[in-house]
């Protein structure tokens, strides 16, 4: 009996230590990210993903860093290799969490990055896909503020392109803000919770007179 208790305690302890490593690793990765050491952060997220197995969250952040990094470069080769890498990471995230609204929003952002990179090549081909991904994400989580905000931004972009008024989607942005404000603290540690800061950028169009 004593042995059994020992084993169980040890297993729990082992698990707790594992969790502790995970929390420590993830926090460290976010620190690196904050300190603009984005590649180190992405590397660490990827390492955590490899060690954790079956956890989509570190894959999600590693992919997100690669996607965001392409916004600041004009180097075609870098953009394509980063986006290809991000796609692999998104695919990994999907195998561990199918039908996940957060991953779908990220995949829509990934495809949007392709469109932004070469509109004449990818615009026609991927626009429908981006739209479909946001629709799927919203169908799964109608109240997901990131899905609402980024979908609105995407729609504003295409409205501008078609010479329509992008402000038509401002109510959607308001809705996103509302859901951001009312969002509960996630129960799962490091569950995507970001996005409120992005509202200002998207709102700029709405505030123009």
């Amino acid at each position: 009996m004593k042995t059994l208790i020992t084993i169980i305690t040890l297993l729990c302890l082992q698990f707790a230590i594992g969790q502790q490593n995970y929390n420590k690793g993830m926090s460290k990765a976010f620190e690196l990210w904050k300190a603009q050491q984005t590649d180190e952060a992405a590397n660490l997220f990827e390492r955590i993903a490899g060690a954790e197995k079956e956890n989509w969250i570190p894959f999600y952040y590693a992919a997100q860093i690669h996607i965001i990094s392409t916004y600041n470069t004009k180097e075609g080769k870098e953009i394509e290799s980063r986006l290809a890498k991000a796609q692999n990471l998104v695919n990994e995230a999907k195998t561990f969490s199918d039908n996940n609204a957060e991953v779908l929003v990220l995949e829509a952002m990934l495809n949007t990055a392709y469109v932004a990179y070469k509109p004449n090549v990818y615009g026609m081909k991927l626009s429908a896909k981006v739209e479909e991904l946001y629709q799927q994400a919203k169908a799964l989580e109608p109240n997901n503020p990131r899905a609402i905000l980024y979908h609105a931004e995407w729609k504003m972009g295409s409205a501008r392109f078609w010479g329509k008024d992008p402000k038509a989607f401002c109510p959607e942005v308001e809705k996103a803000i509302l859901y951001f404000e009312n969002a509960e603290e996630p129960k799962v540690p490091f569950y995507p919770h970001w996005g409120m800061k992005q509202v200002t950028r998207v709102q700029k169009i709405c505030n123009q007179s």
């Binding site: 590649d39 990827e46 490899g50 060690a51």
Partner: peptide, 15 residues
């Protein structure tokens, strides 16, 4: 610069 080096299946690694 920026290569990811780590022990497979662990948290131990660096860039």
């Amino acid at each position: 610069l920026g290569a990811n080096v780590y022990l497979d299946g662990t948290y131990d690694g660096g860039s």
